[in-house]
Design a protein around this nucleic acid. Structure first.
Length: 293
DNA sequence: AAGAGAGGCAACCGCAACGAT
DNA sequence: CATCGTTGCGGTTGCCTCTCT
């Protein structure tokens, strides 16, 4: 069909972002917001494609991002949610305030997956690997889908990890939530974090019992800060600790930086950070097309 | 102390969904 | 109703850093 490229590939810079580019992007977005990513780089004076700008912003520059390794509780929550949702990282991320889908995806692939394998749990099905005909390390399974899925229960796609996992299919043990759940309000992060009634998946349970991941239940479950960008309903509450500034926020400390970190609160009335900055704009997000047309 | 290998993370690519015209 | 444009998502790649030999 011939999609139009998201940008003219000519003269578009790729690769790691420089501090200067970050400054430009943050500065621009803070003052103008974004209405259309495609033109952001042009107006911001960046030789990047809009997609790249969006990615940089959402994955790295957004002020409400937490950074650093996932806590035990977050990790457990990720496993739990993965058991229900599969590789729908964005949905999982939506329930982990301050975390991005990319971050969670990376963490899953680099840490959690291995941890589960080591524990003899299939990171795809979240079931014990026991009946797996092939050796545990999933690298081996790459080309060899199990000859015949033993149970229809785990009629998960042959290689959800490697190939396109059907987005809609509820593959795993997902009770086809896509149908209705999408419209349901997200439950509060603290509700999720507050010790699910019973370990929903073997994996989550195992991990929570595993020595490597401790302290799962009692008390310490407040890790997931309520300052959620996705579930705006979460009261800013006390826990704005999620606003630890990501490294890139050196930007704000620079002499010629864009803005002082302290002024965020002023910028975004109603709690300052921990919410999408642009939600604070009148009308919610960037609107008043004034600057744009 | 140097080199090799492995692991982790940021960024890119392509597809699908959604909304506007 | 069909087409086009934009955004969002998931998978994959490549570079950088750390660890081991």
């Amino acid at each position: 069909m011939g999609r139009q490229p998201c940008c003219d590939k000519v003269g578009v810079k790729k690769g790691p972002w420089t501090a200067e580019e970050d400054q430009k992007l943050v500065g621009f977005l803070l003052t103008h917001g974004h209405c259309c990513w495609r033109i952001v780089p042009k107006l911001a004076g960046l030789l990047r494609c809009g997609k790249s700008c969006r990615l940089r912003w959402t994955n790295y520059l957004r002020p409400d991002l937490k950074r650093g390794v996932l806590s035990d509780d977050e990790e457990r929550l990720v496993i739990d949610l993965h058991g229900q949702l599969g590789n729908r990282w964005s949905k999982i991320a939506a329930r982990l305030p301050g975390r991005t889908d990319n971050e969670i995806k990376n963490h899953w692939n680099t840490h959690i997956r291995k941890k589960l394998l080591r524990m003899g749990i299939d990171p795809v099905t979240h079931l014990p690997l026991q009946e797996a005909p092939a050796p545990p390390p999933q690298e081996q399974q790459e080309d060899q889908p199990p000859p015949a899925p033993p149970q229809q229960q785990q009629q998960q796609p042959p290689q959800p990890q490697e190939h396109h996992q059907p987005r809609n299919d509820s593959g795993l043990m997902l009770q086809d939530d896509d149908a209705g759940e999408e419209d349901l309000p997200m439950f509060q992060p603290h509700e999720v974090a507050t010790a699910p009634p019973a370990p929903p998946t073997a994996a989550a349970a195992a991990v929570s019992n595993c020595g490597s991941v401790s302290s799962a239940s009692a008390g310490s479950v407040s890790v997931v800060s309520p300052s959620c960008s996705s579930s705006a309903s979460a009261p800013a509450a006390s826990g704005v600790e999620a606003t630890e500034w990501p490294e890139p926020m050196y930007l704000f400390g620079m002499d010629d930086g864009i803005i002082d970190a302290g002024s965020w609160d002023g910028l975004f009335p109603g709690g300052g950070m921990g919410v999408d900055p642009f939600d604070g704009y009148p009308g919610g997000g960037f609107d008043q097309d004034d600057d744009w047309l």
